[in-house]
Write a protein that binds this DNA or RNA. Sequence first.
DNA 1: TCAAGGATCCGCT
DNA 2: GCGGATCCTTGAA
Length: 223
Amino acid sequence: MTMARDDLALPSLEAARRLLGARLVRDDRSGRRVGRIVELEAYIGTDDRASHARFGRTARNAVMFGRPGIAYVYLVYGMHHCLNVVSEPEGRAAALLVRRVVPLEGAHLMREARVARLRAARRDDDTDRARRDARRIAALATSELTDGPGLVTAAFGLDRSWTGVDLCDPASSLRLEPAPSDEPPPPFAAGPRVGIAYAGEPWTSRPWRLTVTDEPFAPRPSA
DNA sequence: TCAAGGATCCGCT
DNA sequence: GCGGATCCTTGAA
């Protein structure tokens, strides 16, 4: 079962509440990776000066104006990819940035993918450094494997080519699944979004970052 | 065409 | 705690 598209076709903060605690699943030949979504940021409308939709519809952000439940993956700082879930009804530009998940299944595949991403990013062929990278990632706690937006995409092996994938389609290799029915909706805190100082007020202060607070290693909402 | 700058992470201090 | 990496997207010329 996948997440109902209707749950994402809502005002973005309501959609985000429903997405907290849900599962991000990548399932293909190499195996199955599952992460519990514990941190999201909402980018809402063309007025939001922090949103990629602030200049109106462009080639890059077009999916943000489309159907809810579609993946929007972009490149930031020339090297990191970020996964977003399109929210709001079709025609309203909005997306939810997946900032953090907690691995539940396939942590070994996530480690492999993290190492592979680093190897791909290295310009040279320094085998000593490659060994250090592999050791560093092997030493990470499971919860650290996907502790940031660029790390989620690295661990799940995602890049811009995943833009447009329907996360509500059970046939997609990348999809969203609701939490088990016996798992109550998680408690969460709201705080300002990260890394958007350029947007100015009131956008930098909008409490549009939602963080689950029942995780043992949940980051502080204001951090 | 061009120049500017970014929804981040890592390594070194 | 800070600066560098790195390339794509954007608005302006």
